[in-house]
Amino acid sequence: MVYLRLIAQFIRASIMEETSYRVNFWINLLHSLLNLTTGVLGVYILFAQIERVNGWGFPAALAVLGVYLTIQALRNLFIGPSLDILAGMDGEVWSGNLDFTLVRPVNIQFLASFRRWHLFALFDLILGLGVLVFAVVRMHEALTLPNIGLFLLTLVAATGILYAILLAFSALVFWSPGVMFTWIFDGVFQLGRYPLGLYPGWVRLALTWIIPVGVITTIPAQALSGDLSMNQLALILLMSVVLVFCASLFFKAALRRYASASS
């Protein structure tokens, strides 16, 4: 498994790079705790005013927040840092440094998606899962093995959807190298903090079919608490496979536009 060995090497290199800036550890810790506090209080303040919104209570909404934090942590673990190298004013597409990436004897999409790791995100992952477990226990749902299995399955599918969207947004840099397209998605992704059911109908439709942020966070949360329907399971699995496939094709097509940078 050449690819797994490469990933291990990428992780090692990233650890060496990150540990050379020690103060960053405390800054990262501060950011993680702020993110957790604002997230949890955001849900708590809403449900301090009203007990149920469209059938959603505090623990169920908190579970969705837990999935949101978990997926956000996975995004920051490798997908985000790796793809961000492409875009922006000092990105590889603008500067022409993508030349050096392209000549490597490895699949370019693999390199673009896995080459940089931000291991502090593992801490965020634990926090996210912690919120999720706390919420499910508050719902008085037992954590059964089949539910955990379904949850992990839908979580992988959700990460696939997120990856596909970010890959497609990153591929847009081949048209306009200076623009941070993934930032646009990051804005929309914040809507996933709350259950889809809290939003008006048209937003719900948009977040299911146009930019499936709602699918990414709401369905895994329902899987863990045992509220998952067969339709939802089929939807998230199918969507994940189709989107990853389409995004890969799009990335390949976009790559053909790359003409290096003139010096």
């Binding site: 306009s176 200076g178 941070m180 930032w183 914040q190 903090r193 939003y199």
Partner: peptide, 27 residues
Amino acid sequence: QYRSFFFILAFGWMIPPLIYMLVWSGA
């Protein structure tokens, strides 16, 4: 000249109020 960059920033800053607008008006 760099307006697209600032438009993206401004879009990001609009999102939290928009979320709470939808959530509170729905509630």
